[in-house]
Write a protein that binds this DNA or RNA. Sequence first.
DNA 1: TTCGATGTTCTACGAACGTCGAACAATGAT
DNA 2: ATCATTGTTCGACGTTCGTAGAACATCGAA
Lengths: 117, 117
Amino acid sequence: MREARHPEVDEITLTGVMAALSDPIRVGIVRVLADGRERGWGELRVPVAKSTLSHHLRVLRDAGLTRTRQEGTRCYVTLRREDVQARFPGLLEAVLAAAEEDDVGHQVTVQPGPQRA
Amino acid sequence: MREARHPEVDEITLTGVMAALSDPIRVGIVRVLADGRERGWGELRVPVAKSTLSHHLRVLRDAGLTRTRQEGTRCYVTLRREDVQARFPGLLEAVLAAAEEDDVGHQVTVQPGPQRA
DNA sequence: TTCGATGTTCTACGAACGTCGAACAATGAT
DNA sequence: ATCATTGTTCGACGTTCGTAGAACATCGAA
């Protein structure tokens, strides 16, 4: 596992963000992260294979929506809310509100276990 | 050419809108329509084949973003701004602002000719 | 009626996507 | 050193997408 690359704020593209958020599962992941808390990989409860989850997290990271931090063999992910807000003001808020309204990505939850970093 | 189907306001989905707006050309079309004026098919200047343009307009229509009206052999398209706003408040505004910022979809323009309905 | 103009639909094709299982790499634990 | 845990990467598979050309349908004009 080599260091993951994160795009700079000004490298974030609109179509990249839109494409990343056109999948219900990825929207669900973003919703779970919307409270600002950092979540552990294993804390995420997503009804897909782990390779698929890895793929989705990569898409979100490449789009500039999330940041992944590694600590030993585990990794933790956070939402880049301020960065996205700085790049595209109001966009993420609107998407989150819309997703909440329709419960998009409800398949994604977090394990309420004591998994603090 | 049979009557095109338009989704009701509550049939518009978030992922559908996001997917529709993840293509630069479609974003460009939406930007061109953002002034609220109805535009004729032939008025749109898009650097793709007409079958491709037809496809893009269909995607936008199916997503509930635009409305197509037929008049004889010609058709006219408008942005369903209020409908989208009612369904997902602030979303379209944020996308349009973001698109303006980056000039996404700049390939799409309108023929400034006298083509009034 | 015969043309021409206007869009849609069909078919095709390469690229990208979502998904999975298996193999792999990196780290921590024993 | 050996093993288990954690997550990434690598094919593979079927689906969807963006694109174009050709054929078609519809309507207005000559």
